[in-house]
Design a protein around this nucleic acid. Structure first.
Length: 424
DNA sequence: TCTGGGGTCCTAGGACCC
DNA sequence: TCTGGGGTCCTAGGACCC
């Protein structure tokens, strides 16, 4: 659906009766990573349900990625928050149990949920690994939407073993806000007439897309609740915050004409990054890691049948100073060799001799479909040979697992990256 | 034993062209 | 011997999401 058509959508919908409004559900898994870990442990014979005790899913502190990814209700009661350090979590709640994440399992459960939801509509947008939007407009009228939500909620609990929150509304924004109200295992509606009572009293920080940089600025303008933002002068907000301002004002008023993107879209960029176990200040070692990251990135790129036009290298110093450089490629490519050559060049451009590097990332953007690749004089026999090599390596990786094949001369980098989850 | 990793979108400023 | 302005492309950085 084009943007231009989207613009007139509201006129279209407003000319129909209430029953012709879009019917949107937002399904949100409660404490996804923790719940899914719990279900998986129970399935494997565990005697404890980690949802019932103070528990968190966390990264690995020895690898310097010790942050909280998910928490149980009991852990939340201790004051533990997502994204804070495990160190802090342990201070708040000394007895807290810590479990490591496993994205392979999460993907499995996410797929199970998706397949169940497909029985209700095929217009599903997978907004993240644990959230879906469903467009039910063509399938039912308003009065049965709640019943469908109840049925979904019940079935997920009984058949899959975890709970969800479901938001019921006439657009995505309101459905998402609704699913966030009270948790867990709840269904909330947020129809237009309910906006003042259910949404406007909330602190402005609760509004989708309002983060920690914008909220203090609104506070300075005496705007503390979503209602106050909704009633503020749109022009004033738009002048101060630009495009983002218009969006936040419309969100505060419950306005959102965006469509449920149910068609599987290819990514706009592909990247991998890693926080190093120790800071590194030797360019040779950094280059090795950039090579290993490039291999990961191009492997994924080739699986999407995409070619990259720009390459981006990101660095984070020990003081958390981030920087990045990007560069265009002459010809779109998925070749490890070519993308590595550019990445290496960018790394050397930006690397200062004395910097202690904590994190490195490689990503590619401006992707195009492989079929669209223009026949080019530059696409020589030599390139084709490299292409074949990449393909053979990919096939082996698909067959025997990602880490089977390691390039000679990058043992250190490979060992570091072996510890990471490789995205499918 | 302090602070992840995957993304998307937007903006400001410089280069360059007419 | 004074110093435009519109448009596009590109890059670096920032804000936000889960």
């Amino acid at each position: 659906m084009t943007k231009a058509l989207d613009k007139y959508k509201h006129i279209f919908y407003n000319n129909f009766g209430d029953n012709m409004k879009r019917q949107i559900l937002h399904v949100d898994v409660n404490n996804a990573f923790l719940s899914w870990t719990a279900v998986d442990m129970l399935k494997k014979g565990s005697k404890i349900d980690i949802r019932e005790i103070p528990a968190i899913i966390g990264g690995d502190e020895t690898k310097r990625s010790g942050i909280v990814l998910a928490k149980s209700m009991k852990a939340k009661e201790c004051g533990i928050r997502t994204a804070e350090t495990i160190y802090q979590a342990r201070i708040k709640c000394p007895g807290v149990k810590i479990y490591s994440s496993d994205f392979k399992i999460y993907r499995e459960y996410s797929d199970k949920l998706y397949n169940l939801l497909l029985e209700y509509t095929d217009k599903i947008e997978r907004f993240s690994i644990d959230e879906c939007f469903l467009d039910m407009t063509q399938y039912l009228m308003k009065d049965t939407l709640i019943n469908k939500a109840k049925e979904i909620s019940k079935r997920v609990k009984e058949e899959l073993g975890f709970t969800v929150n479901i938001g019921v509304a006439h657009n995505k924004l309101l459905a998402k806000m609704a699913s966030d109200f009270t948790k867990p295992d709840k269904i909330h509606t947020l129809y237009e007439e309910e906006i003042p009572t259910k949404m406007w009293k909330l602190p402005v920080s609760e509004l989708f897309m309002l983060g920690k940089k914008t909220v203090p600025k609104l506070y300075n303008m005496q705007i503390r609740t979503i209602g106050e933002l909704a009633k503020a002068d749109k022009n004033v907000i738009s002048k101060k915050f630009g495009k983002h301002g218009i969006q936040m004002w419309e969100y505060a008023n419950g306005i959102d004409n965006s469509e449920v993107q149910y068609k599987q879209e290819k990514p706009k960029g592909v990247g991998n990054s890693i926080t190093l176990p120790q800071n590194i200040n030797e360019i040779e070692k950094l280059e090795e890691i950039v090579l290993a990251l490039t291999e990961q990135v191009t492997y994924r790129l080739r699986r999407y049948d995409l070619l990259a036009t720009t390459v981006n290298v990101q660095l984070r110093t020990k003081d958390f100073i981030d920087s990045s450089h990007q560069g265009k490629l002459q010809i779109a490519t998925d070749s490890t060799k070519e993308i590595y050559a550019k990445a290496k060049e960018l790394l050397n451009q930006m690397y200062k001799k004395t910097s202690e590097i904590r994190l490195i990332g490689v990503r590619v953007d401006n992707l195009i479909e492989k079929e669209e690749q223009q026949l080019s004089l530059f696409h020589s026999q030599k390139d084709k040979k490299q292409e074949k090599l990449d393909k053979v390596v990919d096939e082996l990786k698909n067959k025997y697992g990602y880490n089977t094949i390691t390039r000679a001369g990058k043992l250190n980098a490979g060992d570091i990256l072996k510890l990471k989850d490789i995205k499918k």
